[in-house]
Amino acid sequence: MVLVSAFKDGFAALRTNPILLVAGLLVGAGSQLQYVEHLNESPLLSVGAPLAWLIVFPFVLGGFIETARAAIEGTNTSATQFVTAARTHYFRLLLGTVLFVLIVLGTAIGLGLIGFVLGIGLIPLAAIHEMAAFAAGVGSLLVWLLSVLVVIMFVQFYDAAIVIEDQSVTDSFRRSIALVRSNLKSVTGFSLVWVILLNAFSIPEYLLQLTLTETGPADVLPIDLGVPIAVLLPIGIVLSAVGFAYIYTVYTAYYLRLIADSPISTVSE
Rank of each mutant, 00 (worst) to 15 (best):
132 A>N: 01
15 R>Q: 15
3 L>E: 14
260 A>V: 03
182 S>C: 10
244 F>A: 01
195 V>Y: 15
57 F>I: 13
124 P>C: 12
228 P>A: 10
49 A>S: 12
61 L>T: 11
98 V>A: 14
18 P>S: 09
96 G>W: 00
109 I>H: 11
143 V>W: 00
198 L>F: 10
190 F>T: 02
179 L>C: 07
33 L>E: 03
66 E>S: 07
15 R>F: 11
33 L>T: 15
213 T>C: 03
245 A>Q: 02
25 L>H: 04
124 P>W: 11
112 G>S: 09
142 L>C: 04
50 P>A: 07
16 T>W: 08
209 Q>W: 15
111 L>H: 04
139 G>E: 04
246 Y>A: 04
168 S>M: 08
23 A>K: 00
68 A>C: 11
106 G>W: 05
13 A>I: 06
173 F>G: 00
157 F>N: 00
211 T>S: 11
192 L>C: 13
207 L>V: 09
34 Q>V: 13
38 H>D: 09
134 F>C: 04
183 N>C: 03
187 V>S: 04
220 V>M: 13
174 R>N: 14
15 R>H: 15
222 P>C: 03
140 S>H: 05
112 G>A: 08
122 L>M: 11
92 R>D: 09
70 A>W: 01
119 G>D: 13
133 A>P: 01
23 A>G: 13
241 A>S: 08
137 G>P: 07
59 F>N: 00
115 G>Q: 06
238 V>Q: 05
105 L>Y: 08
112 G>W: 03
53 W>E: 06
110 G>Q: 10
24 G>W: 00
44 L>C: 07
211 T>A: 10
186 S>G: 10
150 V>P: 02
20 L>P: 00
136 A>N: 04
14 L>C: 03
137 G>T: 06
96 G>A: 08
245 A>S: 06
125 L>D: 05
205 E>H: 08
26 L>R: 04
76 N>I: 12
254 Y>T: 02
202 S>N: 09
9 D>H: 07
108 A>H: 12
234 P>K: 02
140 S>E: 15
